[in-house]
Structure formats: C-alpha cells, structure tokens
Design a protein around this nucleic acid. Sequence first.
DNA 1: AAGGCCCTTCTTTTT
DNA 2: GAAGGGCCTT
Length: 738
Amino acid sequence: MVQSLPMTLLANLNPQQYEAVTTQSKQTLVLAGPGSGKTRVLTQRIAYLVQEMGVAPYQILAVTFTNKAAREMRARVENLLSQQLQDIWLGTFHSICARLLRRETNALPYRPNFVIFDEGDQETLIKRAIRELNIDEKTFRPAGVLASISNAKNDLKLPQDYPSQSYRDEVVKRVYERYQSLLVDNNALDFDDLLFVAVRLLRENPDICRRYASRFAQVLVDEFQDTNLAQYELLKLISSYHKSIFVVGDEDQSIYRWRGADYRNVLRFEKDYPDCQKILLEQNYRSPQNVLDTARAVINRNPNRTPKLLFTDRGNGDTITLFEAVDDTSEAAYVVDTIQQLVMSKSAKPSDFAIMYRTNAQSRLLEEAFLREGMAYRLVGAQRFYGRREVKDCIAYLRLVHNPDDEVSLSRIINVPTRGIGEKTVLSLILAARSAHISPGQVLIDLGQNGDSSRFWSALSGRGAMLLADFGVLLGNWIEQKDKISLPALFDQILEDVVYQEYIEDNSDEGEDRWGNVQELRKLAFEYQDRGMTEFLENLALVSDQDTLPEAADAPTLLTLHAAKGLEFSQVFIIGLDEGILPHSRSKDDPEQMMEERRLFYVGITRAKDRLYLVRAERRSQYGAYEFSEPSQFLADIPATLLKVKSSSSSTRRRSSSSYDFSEQISSATRWAPSKPVTPTPEIQQRFRAAMRVKHPTWGEGMVLDSRMIDGEETLDVFFESVGFKRLMASIANLEIL
DNA sequence: AAGGCCCTTCTTTTT
DNA sequence: GAAGGGCCTT
C-alpha cells in the first residue's frame, strides 16, 4: 500500500519536479518558469508531506495568490489523497491573516466582528481624516495620501515610524495617525492592516507566535516573487519554530511592485536561509517554441535577472500574428471576427480564447463588439459586480448590522433610500456620538430604544431626532433578528423595511439591471446561510478578480494582464500594444516600472498554449478624442522571423484572406523597429534555431534551446540527453543538425 | 433636504 | 468619456 503510493503520487514528474516534490531539505526555493508545472509541484508536495512524511494536515499552511487557486489546490490534493483536508490552512495571505486575527482579537484593539475596509471605504475614511485635520484636499489628494500610507504599512512602518523629511511627509504622517485611529474606532481593518496587524500580533506576543509557529510544521508559498515585506515577515514569523518553508516563484513574473511586492524577497530568502535548496524548473509544458521564443525575446531585455532557459518539446507551433488595426474599434472587431472564424471552422471552441489588455477600460470596446455579433463572453473582474452602487448599498446595510461601529457603512446608507436625514442631521449625530465617546451607530440604537427619553434626544433638532430614532428602531430590530433568522431572511427583511426595490426600480432597463444585481447578491447570501454573516462579509471583502470567473460557460474570456497570471488559454490575444498603453504612460519615467511593464507583457505571452495574437491600433480614443499612437516599443524586440504581420489596410484591399505576400510581411515587420538600435539581424548567419535536434561528437544527441549572436559568434544553449545543459560556440562545437 | 445640471478632473494594474 | 464635486433651484 505504502509502496504503491509514490507511484501514483510521483508519476510523470521530470527530475527537477521530482526533486522539488520529495526534497528533504528544510528550506526550498523553487524558481519556476511559466508553464513549468509549479502548481503541480505544490499540490504533489502537499500530498507527499501528508502521505509519505506523516505530516498532519493541520500542521500545513499553504498560501496562494487567489482564493480560486486555493480552492483548486485543495481539491487537487484531496483528489490525490482521496481524503478530505479540512484542517489544512490554505488560502490567500489576506484571508489567512483575517482568520488568524479573528481568533486572537483578545490581544488586539478590535472585536471579533471587525469588518474589512476595501479601497472605497479606505478613501472615505482618508477624506474624513484629511477634513478633520483641515488639510487641503486639492494639494493632498486622498488617493495619493492613501497610497503613501499603504506603502508604509506594507513596509511595516507605524505612523510614528513615518519619515518627516518633507512637508508632505509631515502631512501624510498626521493623516496616517488619524486614519489609523479612525479605523480602530470603526472596528475595521483595511487590506494592509490584515497583514501588518498580523505581523505585529506575532512580533509582540511571543506566546501567540510560538503557538502558531509550533503548529505549522510545513509552510508553502505560491507566487513568492509577489510578496511584500509584510508578507515576507509574516512567513518568517510563522515558520520560526520548525523553519520548514517551501516557496515557489518566478522573478520574471513579478507584476505587483506597485503594491509593495518585492521580487528581491527571493534574494532575501537565500540570505536568510543560506542552507536552502534551490531548484530550477525550466521545461515548459504549455506553449510551443515560437511563443517561448517571443516571450524570451521580450524578457531578455530586462537586465539583472537570473537567466532561465525556457524550452519545450512541443515543436515550433504557429507563427505569432501581429495585427495592426486602423483604430481601436476595428481592433476589437478584428478580435471578435477572428474568433468567430476560428469557431466556425471548428479549429477552436469559444472557451479556448482569452483577450488580455493593460487597463480595464479597454474591455468596453470588446464588449460592444461581442454584443454586436451576439456572441457570449465572460469578463473577469470583481469590480464589475461588487463595485455596483446597489450592491455596495446592500453590503453596507449588512455590515452595519454586523458591526454597528462601522461609520463608513452607516454614512453610506443612513439616507439611502432618502429618508430626510440630510447633511446637517448626520453632522449633529456624529457630534453627539463624539462627545459621548461612542460610535454614531450606537447613538442611533439608543435613540431607537429610548425615543425622546434617550440621553441624545436633546442634542438633536426635533425633526432630525425623530427621523434618526425611526432609523434607529429599524437598525435595532435587525440586530436583534440577526442571530434568530437566516442570512437571506435578514437580507429580505432589510430590503423590505427600507423599501429598497421601489427605490432602485424606476421602470428603466437600468433599474431592472440594478434589481437583478441585488437578487444576485441575495442568492450569494443564500449560499452562505450555513456559514454565517462573518464569513459572508469577509469573503465579499476578499474576493479577487479571478475568483469571479464564471466556470462553465463556453465563451471567450476578457481579462487584464494582471488577472491572467497563473492562467492558461489555447488562443491568446493581447491587445493595445501601443506606447502609452503597454507600456503604460505612467511607467515611462521609471526604469523599474518599465521593467515591470515588460514582465507584464511576458506574463501575457506565456499564457498561450497554442496561438498568440498581438494586436494594436494606429488610432485610439484616449479621452474622448482620437489620438494617433505609436507601436509599443516591446514589439521591436521580437525578431521579425517570429511574426506574421497583418494590417487592416491590406486586409480590406485583399479581403480577409490569409494570402499575404511574404516580402510584404517582412518589409512591414521591419517597420516595428525603425529608429531603435537593433542588433544586426542575426538570422542570416545563424545556422541553428531553437528546438532543432543536433548531435555532438562526445555528448551525443540534444536539442537546441536558444541560439544568438554574441560578438559575431553564434552561441548556443543545448540540452543533451547525456549531460544536460551546455552553452557552446557553433563554430567550435562541430555540431551536426539532425 | 433633494435633485438636477454643469463643471472639472483625470484615467494602471488589485488583495 | 465617466465620475465626482460644487452650485443652483425647488
């Protein structure tokens, strides 16, 4: 029995994967190129730990990037082991921290019913702090101040640690201080707090830290290159007892620097754990060689990276198509047309396709094009649903019932639907609350309970006091009902009490849509009725874009390049390959950011399992008016031989046939690198190409992984069956092409 | 207090 | 081209 297991567990792993899954080293760093099977390594590693090394599931902590990835990983491990693994802590950094913090509120200035503030809530609160401090909102934009505070938290800096080098620093520091105490008053944590407070909890309470650290005998981390300092520190603390930590990542896929992610955590890891074992996964099982060559041509321009081989035995595959549309509308039309043609010719099915773009706004024209053609599509993006005003309103009601101290939710819905409680009344409510050192929500409840004998009654104007008391009665009722009736029943009760349906249904199509969204949320509440409000609200706050991807539908997927990380599709379109879009104009001045734009493109390219389409438009409407755009500088880095260039103009001239004159393509292709210092086109002198089979006099047969010209010498990376990777000069090596 | 209108503003990526 | 803010009228 025990003997047969490794067979099923470890079958079909290549030597590097096998080593990673079964390593006995305590600290392991797996550097995994795209499509190299890192998810597989992680799942099998967990299964191996449980089955072969006798690690109990509750001793395992595994961190993924999205909830979806966590769910999938759990399902796959359970499948491998044919057992339920309820006790594994498996989730995103944020959800794991929320879980940890909810268990340890005794040691924290929060109560267990704390809520999680999303970006909108954060901004509301920041604005409040800025106004309270009489700071000018124009010179100190809330979003900018928030970003600075967020960075500070990710760097584990408290308000008192915040620098005061400049006037702006001073201002941010003061806002940070006020903002933080407002959060505590609201019994709320923002996204960054989840991590930062967890780190402080473990740092400042050695007993608690020891409890968790001794429990988690094995810590595993996916997408390690995208951890920030707070996350790194958390991992270090939580693995401080057993010091068994297994991380998987790829610096070339680090795309969250702007959120504090620091791929140098990989270096930090090697420094902190000098005995760690480093394993490279370089064989790609996803994409054909042409796609990999394109990806490599793009990423190789980034300096200071550990060069990684990227090879496949899948063959060259189709040429990459580069399409140049006249404008952004025809860019979208081209994508939809091409998909329709391929679907109709049965070369692919709708769900094989993904369309990736740099900014969410780019999805609009695509959606319109799909709608025009009557084709279904699925759009990845949590904002789409949870960002809706009516959805946020309903969530605010639930949050307020769950945590009456949540002032942000209260102020959101205290007059929605309008019930005569205007600005002045709200202000007097807040003043009454402040002077009594309780939250406005508590004042409301008191007013509801005691009416004109409430101690707050006299502080408010007659009409205002009455309206507030009326609302307080409702709030008090809901809170009383909360634990007696089910979540969907409470939801219905609230909607009924505030006559919400009539408020949003105005007999327009949009009104119908809005009510539909509310119904959708109610359905979700129904699914959570056994798990309760806390979990419901927490999951609402922590959904990621990828989590919202509807599973079944046989339709193309529309998503940002960021959301595409970790996914793969047979046919990939990357649109908007124009200067200012990809790379984005906001990254222009900062070389580090430009490198990240490049990695983003790299991530997109390497999602393709079969075909890759790169698309751009000569003209696009940036803000209302059309503007001409230059081709993305990244296109110039792709060797012309890999690309088949098409454009709208030639396709209208020749209809949309695929009979393009080759010389026309080449001349067209060279346009992509007009004024830039391009390495002299090496194809002419080069004898070898990636994926060629070759024979060496002493090492025998092997496969060419890469060939390039260095100082006039053709330099090859070859993988030999006998000895593995070798780098050699073509002129000396005496290779025979097979 | 509420709703409407016009003004600016400014647009990255997201847990 | 959308969203929010400020200002106006009712």
